[in-house]
Write a protein that binds this DNA or RNA. Structure first.
Lengths: 198, 198
DNA sequence: CGCCCCTTTGATATTAATCAAGAACTGTGG
DNA sequence: CCACAGTTCTTGATTAATATCAAAGGGGCG
């Protein structure tokens, strides 16, 4: 949707589907920086930074709403508190990056993947897209690998280990958490960084 | 200076010294999330997020200036464009997190450390704290390890490799880049993400 | 039915972590 | 000015985690 190096003049809101942001380095390896679900506005940064430092792309077929920056500026002028709300949104964005950094740098594979799943479960719950402990998780293992900094083969084996331990089931993009407490514990998951509560 | 879980009511500006932000996970491992040098305001996020999700701490003796949020709010009310400037500052913060995530997830040790050094060199240059290719780099190897997601032993060996290749010298906190082009190339460094240019 | 995309499996290679000392500094008090 | 105690850095040996390579299954869709 937007490429690294672009100078966009509008933001988008996800109405349906999943997007991700990523960057590819010289060796050809890709790091996914964030996953985005309906309700997210994944490119607010363009409002104050001229050049995109990463690419925004769809993981699934998606429906997107577009808002020109010009229009956002007008809205902010009319409703000054909107600026604070959007600013806050970008701060939560940054908090999520921090959450992922800890995983990338200091968690082993099992915990890293479990953590990502805990996060996406809560985020899906907040937007009403969970059914009990089940939700759509249309992320391919290769993408999961690029999000967690692992190889796809290792992601596959780690998912098997999570299944073997009875923590979750995942097939055809349908994920069910079978033991939330244990999953959280394996993930060392503390939702604080998502700032859902405030 | 500020701990995870705190609800601060002021921001700080670094006048002298280096700070870092970090989080410690259950296993006791620490991930440093960012390094901060004079001129940085490392805790602007508190302005709109109630609870700190990480700790802010000094790496060296430091001199800090404090600004109550209340005062910042007043200033913003008086000079509305200040809000945009501060917002932008937090967006650059997020961009730096993204830069680090790519390293943590997808770069090998040598490139990861080289990359960090390239970044700090440019940031020090911008604030006028470089002398040619030399600058103070008072970061212990343990801290470097926690910043790059490596073990301290491996950081030590990787630094030796960088020295062996004639890319830099580093002793007693004094760093000199001996071959900037090669260092950049090993690091696969593209300063775009720092948004220094705009 | 066949193709393509995704997942799974097995074998092997690498990178980096861990463990355990020892050496080199730093600052301190005598 | 020196002995020391505490950091920080360095080294060697070993182990563990994860990547890479290569190939084989499975399932959905035209």
């Amino acid at each position: 949707m937007i490429r690294e190096g672009d100078r966009p003049d509008q933001s988008c809101v996800i109405l349906e589907g999943w997007l991700c942001r990523y960057r590819i380095i010289a060796s050809g390896r890709r790091q996914i920086l964030s996953l985005h679900v309906p309700g997210d506005v994944p490119d607010l940064m363009g409002l104050h930074l001229a050049v995109m430092d990463h690419t925004l792309s769809a993981l699934t077929p998606a429906v997107i709403g577009c808002i020109p920056y010009r229009r956002i500026d007008e809205l902010i002028a009319t409703y000054p508190r909107l600026a604070a709300a959007l600013w806050r949104e970008t701060l939560i964005d940054a908090a999520q990056f921090r959450g992922w950094m800890v995983g990338l740098g200091r968690r082993e594979a099992l915990s890293r993947i479990a953590h990502l799943i805990c996060e996406m479960y809560l985020r899906m719950q907040v937007i009403g897209l969970t059914d009990g402990f089940s939700f759509r998780f249309p992320v391919k293992q290769v993408d999961l690998a690029d999000a967690t900094g692992l190889s796809d083969v290792h992601v596959n084996r780690t998912l098997q280990e999570l299944r073997r331990r009875g923590l979750l089931s995942l097939a055809k993009g349908d994920l069910t958490i079978l033991d939330w407490e244990q999953l959280k514990s394996v993930a060392d998951f503390d939702p604080q960084y998502l700032h859902l509560g405030d």
